[in-house]
Design a binder for these strands. Sequence first.
DNA 1: TTACCTGCAAACGCTTTGCATCATA
DNA 2: TATGATGCAAAGCGTTTGCAGGTAA
Lengths: 134, 134
Amino acid sequence: MTADSPARHTRQKDAVLRQLRECDDFVSAQDLHRRLDDEGVKIGLATVYRQLNALADSGAADTIRLDGQQLFRLCGDDGHHHHLVCRECGKTVEIDPPSEAWLRRIATSHGFTVESHTLEVFGLCPDCQKETAR
Amino acid sequence: MTADSPARHTRQKDAVLRQLRECDDFVSAQDLHRRLDDEGVKIGLATVYRQLNALADSGAADTIRLDGQQLFRLCGDDGHHHHLVCRECGKTVEIDPPSEAWLRRIATSHGFTVESHTLEVFGLCPDCQKETAR
DNA sequence: TTACCTGCAAACGCTTTGCATCATA
DNA sequence: TATGATGCAAAGCGTTTGCAGGTAA
């Protein structure tokens, strides 16, 4: 571990951070890149990956893996939460995490520490229930 | 949805199933393929993937995603469970699912139904805690 | 001016798929 | 014999990396 990088300020870094702040949900690198592109922001996909990984490494962003791809979200704001995902249309709703005490009790009973956890609940949202009932 | 496949019995299917039974931890498809190869069992990697996916689809095997690859394990019992995963060495321990009532309460409060859920808790296992403390 | 950052494209690792062949039922 | 299963290799997908040129400090 040598001296850390000067952390230069760039247009692209800003764009990634800003866009990340605008999504309150997890986004994939590709998704973020597409959103920036739609906005007219010119940025390489590799740069998006590099920025997101840097944010994740520094602890500024949270990541989860879903369905083979890595999703990122700025962390630190409102504490972490999980998602209720509609299996049909993909709509997501934030839900509160399970009790930390419960997690800790389970982990420590096996001698593990708790660093992070993921929880996702899948079902049908109200709209898709209507569709299916038809 | 038409009639389902006859499910033919083959040497390869047996080999995958047997090898899977021999590991008490999660294994990747590549890992399982290598183990079979070491045993002298001739089998294509694609077949291993196909068998594992078939097992997972049918509900006979559990899968988790760790570090970019999918890991499989026979799920021994009917009731489903979750995992406590060591971030360092990958060791996993089964844990009980959160209360169904809790899940249902959360989902229905948003008008969702509950079909399935995933929960993974990451931390350090006892051995890796010692390593880190060093 | 320096050296970090970027963009492009090629490389990468894991997984899936097309297709001709094999073998179970 | 008929058809699902297999093996091989190529394609696919998300992600990372090498390198030449760009740009903040």
